[in-house]
């Protein structure tokens, strides 16, 4: 199996779907000649032509409106938003059209489209090249939210969301686009949606995470294991609709829950999972639920390293959950 980074695996998935299905179109700002500002779509325009891979004007509203119309007509648009922080000029299309089309038309119409976008911090991008707004999208019933954390999942999940009949926002952890490498299945590779992955099984504490934070969590776990703590790590993968079953099963075993995300805490995915477990499994819990998150502030530039949750903060969180501190 070829070894790939997350960025390469995403490109591989796009290439695979462009080749397999001529309904697939890839477009956005700078995705053509430039190959995207993160080089993700590099070479795709040469390979598949300007009719299928093309640059748009600088207008997210236009990009998302175009994607919606194409999807209504049975095509499979994969629209790139250059940074998730710049999606807001097109938010009306997402909140009012994309998320609600199937429901409001009584199932007559669907909009099977994918919005791909880099998200998250750790690249010294300041307020507007660092945010993690997955919860905002997750709150719009009708839209799926998917976040890969490994190259294999990046390829498999992206392939699955392109084939999925619902609209999906696919958030790519930009800090680790080219930082993580692993063997990725060649050829067709799909990963089921709404299925979390148990990345490490353990008996002492359940840690739920996703995206770049998955990797920080694994670093923390290494240290915790040295101290005789045995965590179970769940990579959520699909944020909405998420895999409650896997989480509840794990907490049933460990009795402890920590959620690690980089977004702010208030009304976050971490809050949702805490509520799920509090509602459905309070009887098996034997310690406080702990949310390790970004602070409830805009994402700062100079103080970035103090903002992002890291190994140390995760270790503290796990120890709090175990009532060790």
């Amino acid at each position: 199996m070829p070894v790939m980074t997350i960025g390469e695996a995403i490109r591989d998935a796009l290439r695979g779907e462009l080749a397999r299905d001529d309904r697939v179109l890839v477009f956005g700002e700078d995705v053509g000649k430039r190959g995207g500002v993160f080089n993700i779509t590099q070479g795709l325009q040469e390979e598949f032509g300007e009719e299928r891979v093309f640059d748009t004007p600088l207008d997210e509203n236009g990009i998302l409106g175009m994607a919606t119309g194409l999807a209504l007509m049975g095509l499979r648009p994969v629209a790139e938003i250059q940074f998730i922080d710049f999606i807001w000029p097109g938010f009306d299309v997402i909140a009012s059209d994309i998320a609600k089309y199937r429901f409001r038309s009584g199932g007559q119409y669907g909009v099977p489209l994918v919005i791909r976008s880099p998200y998250g911090g750790g690249v010294k991008g300041g307020l507007y090249h660092s945010q993690s707004p997955e919860a905002i999208f997750g709150h719009l019933s009708g839209l799926k939210v998917v976040i890969p954390s490994t190259p294999s999942d990046a390829k498999g999940l992206l392939t699955s969301v392109i084939r999925d009949d619902d609209p999906v926002i696919f958030l790519e952890p930009k800090k680790i686009y080219f930082a993580v490498k692993e063997e990725v299945p060649a050829g067709e590779h799909t990963v089921p949606l709404s299925k979390a992955r148990i990345a490490r099984s353990g008996k002492d504490v359940t840690v739920v995470t996703y995206g770049y934070m998955f990797h920080e969590t694994m670093k923390a776990v290494e240290a915790l294991v040295q101290e005789g703590i045995d965590p179970e790590v769940i990579d959520l993968r699909t944020i909405v609709p998420y895999d409650a079953e896997t989480i509840l099963e794990s907490v049933g075993k460990t009795g402890k829950l920590v959620i690690v995300i980089e977004a702010p805490k208030i009304l976050s995915v971490a809050s949702e999972i805490s509520a799920l477990v509090a509602e459905k499994a309070i009887d098996v819990l034997d310690g406080p639920i702990v949310r390790v998150t970004g602070w409830d502030t805009p994402f700062p530039y100079a103080l970035e390293s103090y903002y992002m949750p890291n190994r140390t903060r995760i270790i503290r969180g796990v120890k709090k959950a175990l009532s060790l501190i």
């Binding site: 922080d85 710049f86 807001w88 000029p89 010294k124 300041g126 307020l127 507007y128 090249h129 100079a302």
Partner: peptide, 25 residues
């Protein structure tokens, strides 16, 4: 602006220059 934003995002009330965000337009 206390180092809150990336380079290129200068603003100063004294200079009657507003503080931009990164969103184009």
């Amino acid at each position: 602006s206390k180092g809150r934003q990336m380079p290129g995002h200068f603003g100063s009330k004294k200079a009657r220059a507003f503080v931009l965000g990164s969103t184009v337009a």
